[in-house]
Design a protein around this nucleic acid. Structure first.
Lengths: 190, 190
DNA sequence: ACCTGAACACCGTTCAAGT
DNA sequence: ACCTGAACACCGTTCAAGT
């Protein structure tokens, strides 16, 4: 699936349509949106969907790749603007906000967080998020702002957990998530 | 479903069998265990399962009611042995451990935590857990060990999140969950 | 009053046939 | 090389018929 360029014109068009529709569907119905429905709405047979994206996760990742990458990219921008400790917190805030806004993202971070199995997702979404958090965590640790005994992936897991916690609130999960994050940060701080 | 006594003998027997089998099934396959399978293993028609437990959640709650109640009861025992702050921590540890051990419990706490909708689960599992955590939290707050601006249900949510986080570890989620809990506690402490 | 299981609906996944 | 959609499998849920 690496070289999208070489595909036949109709194949590329179908792939693109599937991604757009999948993005909407996942945002609407969550990670378990009906694949058959996605195919139908994209105007292709189900078989075509499976040909392009053999698993649900593959489709999910492809649909949100750009968004994930842009969040990961924000890490370096923020790192240039704030002190190591604050940079990490600020980025985690953005990450959490993104996960609350787009339901599919949570399912994805789930993979990123599940101790990237060796083969699992080479060079996929998981990698760039893990890379981003690792840089920020290490920087904060070197600056003496963050406990040394915390692994980057653990921070990711905690954010995931905090978002889970915030999602079961009645109104405004955004408010809760910020509270919870600052609370966790209190515990993580050196 | 309140008066189990008044049921016909065969009905009561079926109900009991369903509960036992459901307990095993949920522990094995998680909250989404096949209901048809549970009915089959219990030696009853699916219709019977639906008659006794109209929703999946009803079955889940009934299957784990005793276990939940015993966890909730532990709260008062612990409260009598430890200082308010430590009592809360100790109980949360037990709660988290229980959720890790029995997969179905997590789904249940999920309900308990989702801001008990007015009608939702009157006098069900959710209530006794919420009651237990409320007593411990208030005591810790009165003793000045816990921040005043934290709601009991928020503590429950955080535990839920922490368990979620710990579950995506390769080995020994028990170790992680204890780390994460103590970390959250650090942030919650007055 | 309660049980049974066939019947229906829905969704995921595969694959033979088509272009 | 890619697409289509019928076919199969599986599961949840209901309900007419039975005791």
């Amino acid at each position: 699936m690496a070289q999208v360029r070489r595909m036949r014109a109709d194949a590329r068009r179908n792939r693109e349509r599937l991604l757009v529709v999948a993005g909407q569907a996942f945002a609407e119905h969550g990670e378990s949106a009906s694949l058959e429905d996605i195919a139908k709405r994209a105007g292709v047979g189900v078989g075509t969907l499976y040909r392009h994206f053999p698993t649900r996760r593959a489709l999910l990742e492809a649909a949100y790749l750009e968004r994930i990458e842009s969040i990961a990219a924000r890490a370096d921008v923020i790192a240039g603007e704030l002190a190591p400790g604050e940079a990490l917190v600020a980025w985690l805030d953005e990450l959490a906000a993104g996960m609350l806004r787009v339901r599919g993202l949570r399912a994805l971070l789930d993979t990123a967080v599940t101790d990237g199995g060796p083969a699992a997702d080479r060079a996929s979404c998981g990698d760039c998020v893990r890379g981003a958090v690792t840089r920020l965590v290490r920087a904060a640790q070197d600056a003496g702002t963050l406990r040394r005994d915390v692994e980057p992936i653990e921070v990711l897991r905690l954010v995931h957990g905090v978002v889970t916690a915030a999602e079961s609130t009645r109104g405004e999960p955004g408010t809760s998530v910020r509270r919870y994050l600052s609370l966790v940060w209190h515990g993580l701080r050196a």
